[in-house]
């Protein structure tokens, strides 16, 4: 039995290879890319001004319900073009998702890694913070904060950023504790590496895959939460084209014109679904042993 032993690929090449074979990752990645492009190119591709109201063109149905191609997805109760609002709404959702999750990531990662790496009192304190954060109901606190501080896009984003860091902290704490106990950390310590250097070169790269997966999950979480807050009337304020707000506005006409809530709902679902699929894909690709 003579078989030439082929050398395993480097971790990065292995991941790239697995990523290219992962159908869910490629597909959701493509959808996400499309949504991002739509958001960036909104002014170019939107057929109408998303804010322009017109009483004459109120509640035009979408084309498949007998509408015209002038308003492919119809118009809302104020006569605004649904398609254009949908396109601009992608900007709001993506921006909120990215910035909130980014802020949470910074807070949660710093807390989680310090707790896992330094242990002892630092760990106890971080665990206490995590417990306090988890005990506070997110929606309630976010609603209260937004109502007290006023509902601008910036405030909604920051409030969520300050609330959604718990999962980063919990997961990175556990992952860092595991990495901390590896002998390559002790070896680096023996070889004169400073603590910041060990954290940067040895700890962070080895918890990175967890970090990216949580980042996608929290982006999805933030997007859904913003939609929920806006739906309850205490998130992004009208007339900003937010998908949650669109659903809220369509709610009144639920019984007669249900496409008013179906269209933004499907858009929201598609975005969140793609982000979650993408996150799952990344987890499969970076840690294939986690799946089986």
């Amino acid at each position: 039995m003579t078989m030439t032993r082929t050398l395993p690929l480097s971790p990065r090449r292995q991941m790239a290879q697995r990523a290219l074979r992962h159908r869910g990752l490629i597909l959701s990645g493509a959808v996400l890319l499309a949504i991002v492009l739509i958001a960036i190119l909104a002014p170019v591709i939107a057929p109408h001004d998303p804010y322009r109201q017109s009483l004459v063109t109120r509640l035009r149905p979408p084309v498949w319900l007998g509408g015209t191609w002038q308003y492919p997805l119809g118009t809302d109760a104020l006569g605004r073009d649904m398609l254009s609002r949908l396109i601009y709404g992608a900007r709001v959702s993506l921006m909120i998702g990215l910035i909130s999750a980014g802020v949470s990531m910074v807070i949660g990662t710093v807390l989680g890694i310090s707790a896992g790496y330094f242990g002892g009192r630092v760990d106890s304190f971080v665990q206490y913070l995590i417990n306090v954060r988890l005990a506070m109901p997110v929606i309630l606190v976010a609603l209260a904060a937004v109502s007290l501080l006023g509902g601008s896009l910036l405030i909604v984003t920051m409030v969520m950023g300050l609330l959604l860091w718990d999962r980063f902290a919990v997961v990175l704490r556990a992952a860092t504790m595991q990495v901390r106990s590896m002998e390559y950390i002790a070896a680096a310590d023996m070889l004169g590496a400073t603590q910041p250097r060990i954290l940067w070169k040895d700890v962070l790269p080895n918890v990175m895959s967890h970090l990216i997966v949580i980042l996608t999950l929290e982006m999805a979480h933030a997007i859904i939460l913003e939609a929920g807050l806006s739906f309850l009337g205490l998130g992004v304020q009208p007339p900003t084209p937010s998908w949650g707000l669109m659903i809220s506005e369509g709610k009144e006409l639920l019984l007669f014109d249900s496409w008013l809530i179906m269209i933004p709902g499907v858009a929201l679902f598609l975005l969140v679904f793609s982000i979650n699929m993408f996150g799952d894909g990344i987890r499969d690709v970076t840690a294939p042993e986690g799946r089986n």
């Binding site: 971790p11 590896m182 002998e183 680096a188 070889l191 004169g192 590496a193 040895d202």
Partner: peptide, 28 residues
């Protein structure tokens, strides 16, 4: 200096061997 027991846990999986070998002298 020390050599540990576990050959799978004593090298950082995310860094090249060269990078890990020069770590010590560069730190010094």
């Amino acid at each position: 200096q020390i050599v540990f027991q576990d050959p799978y846990g004593s090298l950082n999986p995310r860094r090249t061997i060269g990078d890990q070998l020069v770590e010590g002298p560069v730190n010094f």
